Computed example of a mutant assay.
Amino acid sequence: MRLIFLGPPGAGKGTQATRLVEKHGIPQLSTGDMLRAAVAAQTPVGLKAKAIMDAGGLVSDDVVVGIVADRIEEPDARKGFILDGFPRTLAQAEALDRLLDEKGLKLDVVLELDVDQSALVDRIVKRAEDSKAAGQPVRKDDDPEVFKQRLEAYNRDTAAVAPYYRERGLLKKIDGMKSIDEVTAEISQALTA
């Protein structure tokens, strides 16, 4: 199974992807996590991406596509994968199609978590508070001001990706405002339909 999660930051893509990883035994390929790992390792790509990510911006398509291309070659991704946070732009979606086509692969489904964006800031503030309470570091992109910039970038750049996949018959909308378990159930139903 090869699938993409779409939805604005804070919609629950990571939470739901984790559940699918457990259920189906395929890796979650979060470009954010891959980029954060590159930043932590201070790789050339990581150093290049750090300033952009800290400001809430998006790294260049060539860097992200290169990271994804390398990652889907790993043995654990051969049975399938979940892309979380990619593609973020129409150009990335087109590049992903070319990349998969070159590898003889195809997407099975694109799940879009549909959420009330006005509720997302509250969700992010709570996520930051929960991280602090658990003694974990708070992600820089969970700062409300940085988050608002990320949401603006999503609305400007990523909103065009859903229609691209809808036209290809791959898009399924999921009500991301339901409880976590209800969203999981709706996703399971969408994957078997």
Rank of each mutant, 00 (worst) to 15 (best):
R123Q: 08
D142W: 02
Q117R: 15
D143K: 12
N155F: 04
E129L: 13
K106I: 10
P137M: 13
I124M: 13
Q136S: 11
P137V: 13
V125R: 10
S118F: 09
I124F: 07
R127W: 09
Y154Q: 01
D108R: 09
L107Y: 05
N155S: 11
D141Y: 01
E152F: 12
P137G: 11
E152A: 15
A153M: 10
D157M: 11
V138L: 04
Q149L: 09
V125W: 04
R127P: 01
R139L: 03
E129F: 06
A119T: 13
V121N: 01
Y154V: 00
V110G: 01
R156Y: 06
S131D: 14
L113W: 02
P137K: 14
A128E: 08
L111I: 12
S131R: 14
E152R: 14
L111G: 05
Q136Y: 09
E129Q: 15
N155V: 09
V110K: 00
E129P: 04
Y154H: 10
Q149C: 01
L105G: 06
V146Q: 06
R127S: 05
K148C: 03
V121A: 09
V115H: 02
D108T: 10
V109H: 12
L151K: 05
D142A: 03
K106E: 15
S131C: 11
A134F: 08
D143H: 12
G135F: 05
L111P: 01
E145T: 12
E152M: 10
S131P: 05
K148S: 06
L151Y: 07
K140Q: 13
V109I: 14
L120I: 12
E112S: 14
L151I: 12
D157E: 14
K132G: 10
P144M: 06
G135T: 06
K132R: 15
K106Q: 14
L113P: 01
K132L: 14
Q117T: 14
Y154T: 03
D157N: 13
E112I: 03
D142L: 05
E145P: 02
D108G: 13
E112H: 12
D122F: 08
D116R: 11
V146A: 05
Y154K: 02
L120K: 01
L113H: 02
D116Y: 09
L105D: 06
D141I: 00
R150C: 00
V138W: 04
R150Y: 00
E112W: 06
D116E: 14
R123N: 08
D142C: 07
A119E: 15
D114L: 11
Q136D: 11
F147R: 00
L151V: 13
F147T: 01
K132W: 07
D157C: 04
L113D: 00
K126F: 05
D142N: 08
V125S: 10
D116F: 08
Q117D: 15
L120H: 03
K148E: 02
D122R: 11
R127Y: 06
E145C: 04
R127N: 06
V146S: 04
L113Q: 01
R139W: 03
E152K: 15
V138F: 03
A153R: 12
S118Y: 10
E145R: 11
V121K: 02
A134H: 06
K106C: 12
R150W: 00
K132Q: 14
